[in-house]
Design a protein around this nucleic acid. Sequence first.
DNA 1: CTCAAACTGAACTGACCAGTTTACAATAGA
DNA 2: TCTATTGTAAACTGGTCAGTTCAGTTTGAG
Lengths: 204, 204
Amino acid sequence: MNAEAQIKRGRKFDQVIEGARAVFMREGFEGASVDEIARDAGVSKATLYSYFPDKQHLFLEVLRQECDAQSEVEVLFEHTGLSVEEKLCVICKKLITFFLSDFGQDMFRVCVAEAKRFPELGTTFYESGPKHWGERIAGFLRSDKARAVLDIEDPYLAADQLAQLCRTDLMLKVMFGIETNPKEDEIDRIVDEAVRTFLARYRR
Amino acid sequence: MNAEAQIKRGRKFDQVIEGARAVFMREGFEGASVDEIARDAGVSKATLYSYFPDKQHLFLEVLRQECDAQSEVEVLFEHTGLSVEEKLCVICKKLITFFLSDFGQDMFRVCVAEAKRFPELGTTFYESGPKHWGERIAGFLRSDKARAVLDIEDPYLAADQLAQLCRTDLMLKVMFGIETNPKEDEIDRIVDEAVRTFLARYRR
DNA sequence: CTCAAACTGAACTGACCAGTTTACAATAGA
DNA sequence: TCTATTGTAAACTGGTCAGTTCAGTTTGAG
């Protein structure tokens, strides 16, 4: 049983989520039609509406599941045997790769578009996206290993600056369709430059 | 006369733009109905359609005008009598203030939402927004005055990093409705920290 | 095998919306 | 004052879409 109010599960629950995920990512929230989702999911519209009270709640469930799935990345912070600098590079690379992925782009696009008229969505995205990552990074910056190398007063701000240095113009270019399929070495350069700037400020 | 193909001007042209601007910013592109725009503009729908072939071109014209208006900020780069560090602070403050303004937020929101299905919009926004600013900042970083203090190999990358350090978590919080009306001193702190990190890396 | 719960498909409601048309009115230049 | 340009109001076309309904079918637990 599930804590979600008014969301009943049934045999084809996962199918519905799967179809919804695909269509929402492809078309955005407004652009996705419930008929299309039902078709994509191989399920009747009536079944879909027996699980979810409306389109918004369906979307919210997809968002929540996807954000949870993204948390598997925790592993990233377990790596041992890497120097602090190397670890920073690994974190940045992971961040940029995520920002540029189809999923990252689509999720961001849809959430930005809809946040004003659908506040719960904005909150959910922020909490399990940027905030979650910020806390993980800040946690690392506060670790003994990192503190041996870095001199940081405000780990949250530092984590934020690191993440922002990863976003860069390249992310905007992809977002606005100026560039597609950015080159691997372009990404590596951004990682490198982000870590350099970060260390210039915070290295002990 | 105007270079724009198929856009005729008429007595009430400005009224239409004004109404369209208000409604698009309030509702987004999809969310804005042409009837509402016409009502808001105090103009008949037929008049509106005598100026613009369709809703997209109307939106594009609004976008173009607004981006042009934003270029008035050029003045910012004329300031003399300020040290390089002070100038960097002025630039950052202006950037953050813009990112957090209703206009900046709404424009970003609408363009992000629509860029995929309406590519010309993404391009227009990117060129006259981020790209334009990046070039202005890079220009400043390349000036003799700045070069006396700063050691920068790639001014575009440096400009981009500076701008990103301004975006910060606060912008996301406002974007996703977690925070409204950020405090002036919070903004000043971000400016300060952005410039400190930037100078840590690039000060000669 | 039985039966209730889960699911289907298709039609339907009520609403909204982009863009067109038409018959008419205001405006402004000459 | 005359006339061409510009604008108006409202109805209309053809379309989309969220959400509902219902008669009937499938599924699977017991």
